[in-house]
Design a protein around this nucleic acid. Structure first.
Lengths: 173, 173, 173, 173
DNA sequence: GATGAATGAGATTTCATTCAT
DNA sequence: CATGAATGAAATCTCATTCAT
């Protein structure tokens, strides 16, 4: 992966995440990346190929993040870790997450592949804790973290600490 | 407002909500509306004007929905009503909500004008109930309903009843 | 001729003279005239008909102006009158003249019909004064008044009195 | 500057000068230039950018022409040179001049930047010759050459030689 | 690997004109 | 007489993609 390839990916990530995929032209990506427009097509075939390359990186980063949390032994720690996850998105992964979420609204069919391992981990954890309906509880947490992600990625509220406390309290974590 | 104007608004809502604003061409809107393309511009100036006209309608519909819930006397009923709201989106308002949410990810600055009255109602309700930090609690509910909205509008999970029970239980409603 | 017809003619004159015929849309004319767009076509058939109607008025006004000068007995007075003419354009005829001149540059073929009687009057006057080449002298004056018209209609120089004196002096008038 | 760029400029010059800027579509320019329409916008941003590029060339050509005349030592030669200038417009500059003049009538504000050095040269020349009002005399010549330019560019009169003699005689040149 | 010229299809917008009311 | 909705063609402009160098 050459420097210019990295520049293209970075520029495309910024623009796709900030303005949307359809609203971003390859020429703007090229300009932002300081690269000729032709180079994008040489490296990524077409615009969709460029998006796919970025989504590969995004999914890999997401999975690495999940892995650290899921492999925990303690079910409460897993649930707590999952709820806290969006609050702890690091600056260099912010746009990757923003793109993942933005695309959910821009593509015909919802892609649940990213969150699937998280869901399974939650079901297992709630089962271990003896919840009567672990499936529904897992779904509830997934809904919660989508809401949190929206807040963190879009609204950036000031009093995050209080919010996270309030959330964890509801789950007695 | 003539029939053709209504057709344009309806077609644009469907396409903008389903495919995204940038990914929808005015020619597709015109075709879907059974109207000449020029008519769109005669009535709404430009593509953005068309979007604005739809968003006006969306906000008005949202406010009507909120009004019914917020004017309640009982604080618990208000909180419960707000949490249940996204679960009860009617078919004819589904696309308006989908568009409202989709646009949050496609515009430069987050528009919180729609949810502001809801937030104020929640703060008041939690105050009345004696919560120590009503602001954070209100924010928590807003986050929750954003998550629910995402689920309802995008994922359409099967076991909604169980989920809503689980949610309401956390707030002892 | 109804009031609205007059409004249309006036608005069209202003816009055609100031922005150019091709650069002026019938919708702008209608807006400026405070009239529906359809009315323009009811009264003047099409955009060109509107232009023709204005040019009729312009030519008639020009001919009235010429008539007062040309019918003079004294050849020197005629030449003097013609040279002074553009300096004396009245405010209410300013745009008519501006349009006449502007159109010379916007139509395929030059329309000399307006200036023809002036040319004949000049040839006669120079003949009477015994000039050896009255045709060339007449042409020279026509050239001069085109230059003056350009100055008056476009540049509006400050020291007009001095300029007109200098001009008349060259012809010993 | 590639061949196709030159073709575009040439085609645009011909059409803008002959039919007018507003009356010329970019598609006609592209066809005349034997080029795809998109290329016009890639090289010149928009239609106005194309016009500006041509006007740059026109002004440069005009200044080169002026320079040869103005740098003369003899004041009479300068005045004579300026008056004769429009009569001597070469074929390859004919359209540039036609466009310069045509645009004067189509733009909101008169652009005197082209003729300013000529005016200064004239004022100097008339001063040297002891004229009592060199400013007014310079203005008079400017008016004259605008009239001549109109004649040469639009009417193309037959007896040019006689006309130029008559003009120069008035200035005893 | 990289550029930048070039294209053709399509997107947005404007415009003259028609027509029902 | 007058309006304003509506149209279809054309004008301006954008965009993803190709290709010669």
């Amino acid at each position: 992966m050459t420097d210019k390839q990295k520049n293209i990916l970075k520029a495309a990530l910024i623009l796709f995440a900030e303005k949307g995929y359809a609203a971003t032209s390859t020429s703007k990506v090229a300009k932002e990346a300081g690269v000729s427009e032709g180079l994008i097509f040489r490296h990524f075939q077409n615009k969709e190929g460029l998006l796919n390359a970025i989504m590969q990186l995004a999914k890999a980063a997401a999975n690495r993040e999940f892995a650290g949390i899921i492999e925990n032994e303690n079910p409460k720690a897993i649930i707590r870790g999952i709820i806290e996850m969006p609050f702890k998105i690091k600056q260099d992964q912010f746009l990757l997450w923003k793109l993942i979420y933005a695309l959910k609204w821009q593509t015909e069919t919802y892609d649940s592949s990213i969150s699937e391992p998280v869901k399974q981990a939650l079901i297992k954890a709630f089962s271990k804790l003896g919840y009567s309906n672990p499936n529904a509880e897992a779904e509830t947490v997934l809904i919660l973290i989508d809401g949190i992600a929206m807040a963190v990625l879009l609204r950036k509220p000031a009093n995050m600490d209080e919010i996270v406390s309030s959330m964890l309290a509801k789950y007695k974590l």
